[in-house]
Amino acid sequence: MSGGRALWLRVWAAVVFGYLYLPILVLVVFSFNSQKLNLRWQGFTLDWYKVLFADTRIQEAAVNSLVVAGAATSVSTVIGTLLALALARYRLAQPAQLLLYIAIIVPEVVLGIALLIWFSQLGITTGLLTVAAGHVVLCTPFVALTVRARLAGYDRTFEEAAMDLGAREWTTFWRVTLPAIWPGVLSGALLAFTLSLDDYVVALFTAGPGATTLPLRIFSMVRFSITPEINALSTVWVVGVSLILLVGQMCVKKSPS
């Protein structure tokens, strides 16, 4: 068996990548289409980008999403990283792994309604804060597992050396441990940020009427109208996320391993 070099496999891979990218390409190309119905190509225009950047509801939703993603990423990165360190060091912390697995495997709709029940029991009004609280649950396991994977090949003798040389625990953490696991922390944070930015389901149940995030806004736009403005928004999104990913990749590669 010639493995990955077989011709049909290569053809297949090309077809599947075409299938993955063609719809996205269509979105991008048709964001420059002057026909409002967006059925056939008519001519080049940038009008939809003007419409998009003048759309205050989109701007509001984008700001909301960034605030939520920023908050959820900060919290989940800190607690997820600490948990990963605990899992790598103490056997006593192992049961916590069960919580991580539950968080990963529970269907999003179930998490959403469970949080809705909890918040209504507590009498908390839903809003951006409750969305962020839900997103921390979504993101923490991914941060913890990414950092944990990074710690797999980590040699603790450096920490012991630092302590022997008189560094306090806190100094050791900042100067030795954190630089070593930094790429893992960074990719975990990146993952958390994109997960939060992407989430529609948990936000649907935990956002109040005044707290529309970008996916919620996109959903109602897609549901009720078809306008090239959504294409323009998609293009901005695709370009933005690709940039974040590229920058993240570069940061991870640059940092010392």
């Binding site: 719809p23 996205i24 269509v26 979105l27 294409n231 998609s234 695709v238």
Partner: peptide, 14 residues
Amino acid sequence: WTNFLIRIYAWILI
């Protein structure tokens, strides 16, 4: 990484 609603929208157009 592109929002899943955007991907659905692409297929609706198609």
